[in-house]
Simulated assay, not measured.
Amino acid sequence: MDSAPDADAIARRDPGCCLAEYLDQPVPPYTVDEPLDDGQLLRLGDTDWEVLHTPGHTPGHLALWHPEERLLVVGDALSDYDVGWVNLALDGPDASAAAVASLQRLADLEPGVLLPAHGPIPVEPTTAFANALRRGRRLVDDPDGAVWYGARRIFAFALMIRDGIAADEVEPYLLARAWLADAAQLLRRTPEALAAELVGTMIRSGAVVVRDKRLHAAAEYSPVLPEALRAPYPPAWPAPAGRRGL
């Protein structure tokens, strides 16, 4: 399920699609059968869901709404404990405001049940939205904080999917990442300074722990299978059927 512009980028095997190479988060090759747009009805089984374009976490982020049951699939827009990070470097300085506007649009639906992409189902949707909107507005008011928030999230996820990174490999790993270079520019630091500060602050806060000379994310997680990390980046994906020769 992808928005129409994202689906087109995937069909082209665009280097930037899925942010796979940018974030160093390999994604197995796939194709999009049905691009989706805001307001479209999507038939799943014997149920119709309304597609909602909710930019913020990504420009093409989508949510699904079932008005009769008041079920809302919010994806990465929010969870029971957080909001989706925004990429000010790639999506521009208005990305945080777009995320807040999307959260408000979803909150105005007054859903009875929220289904996030991560974590437990929120017990009280109204409270979950109030907390998410408060966090989202902080990202709008503090652009540097939004950049830091994203950097912490990306680095923690890198540690999770790799089940840790050797302590002596962490700095070279970070300095090879495009997202860190972009964050450093926005924060008016050198990449070397940001890498050191990022690691240091996350260890001091307890978000990252050192065990057996490896850095690990402190949060509970399940590492991915090693072969999943060997998936090629999108430009090397096989061309979709019917689009050979792209």
Rank of each mutant, 00 (worst) to 15 (best):
T47C: 11
A20G: 11
A228W: 14
Y30E: 02
T58Y: 07
P235Y: 03
V199F: 03
L180C: 06
G119C: 07
D37T: 15
G242T: 04
R188M: 13
D80H: 06
L114S: 07
P28G: 03
L103R: 03
G75Q: 08
D33N: 09
D24A: 13
G119M: 07
E169L: 09
Q104A: 11
P67N: 02
G92T: 07
R70E: 13
A89I: 11
A99E: 04
G200S: 12
P172G: 04
D91T: 00
G112Y: 04
Y22D: 06
A236L: 08
R13P: 13
D142W: 06
R188F: 04
P223T: 04
P67K: 02
L109T: 15
E197F: 05
E124S: 09
P238G: 01
P125I: 08
P143M: 03
A231F: 02
V74R: 01
D46F: 04
A195L: 06
D38C: 03
V113I: 13
P143S: 04
A99V: 12
P67M: 01
A228L: 13
R244E: 15
E169Q: 12
A183K: 03
R43C: 10
A95C: 08
A99P: 11
P240R: 01
V123R: 07
G60D: 08
N87S: 12
L225M: 12
S3I: 00
D46K: 04
S205D: 12
Q40K: 09
R189C: 13
A77M: 14
H66T: 01
L175R: 01
V73N: 07
A156V: 15
E124T: 13
G75P: 15
R189G: 11
R43D: 09
P232E: 00
T54C: 14
A128T: 05
A20S: 13
L246D: 10
A166G: 07
S222V: 14
P122D: 02
G75S: 07
L72M: 07
Y173E: 12
Y22A: 00
L187H: 10
D76V: 14
L229T: 05
L187N: 10
G45W: 03
L103P: 05
D14R: 04
W237G: 00
S102D: 08
V199R: 06
M160R: 10
L180D: 08
V140L: 05
S205E: 10
A11P: 14
A97G: 13
A98R: 12
P26I: 08
V208C: 05
H216E: 11
P55I: 06
I10N: 01
E171K: 14
C18H: 11
L88Q: 11
A4E: 08
E110P: 10
G16R: 14
P238N: 01
G45I: 12
V140T: 15
G206W: 07
P232T: 00
A166N: 05
M202W: 02
G245K: 09
Y233C: 12
V199W: 03
E197W: 09
G245Y: 13
Y30R: 03
R177D: 12
N131D: 15
R230M: 08
E21Q: 13
S205Q: 06
R204P: 10
L194M: 09
L78Q: 05
C17I: 09
A130E: 13
P234T: 03
D37G: 08
R177H: 12
L42A: 12
R211W: 01
R152V: 05
L71A: 08
W65M: 05
R188Y: 04
G200Q: 13
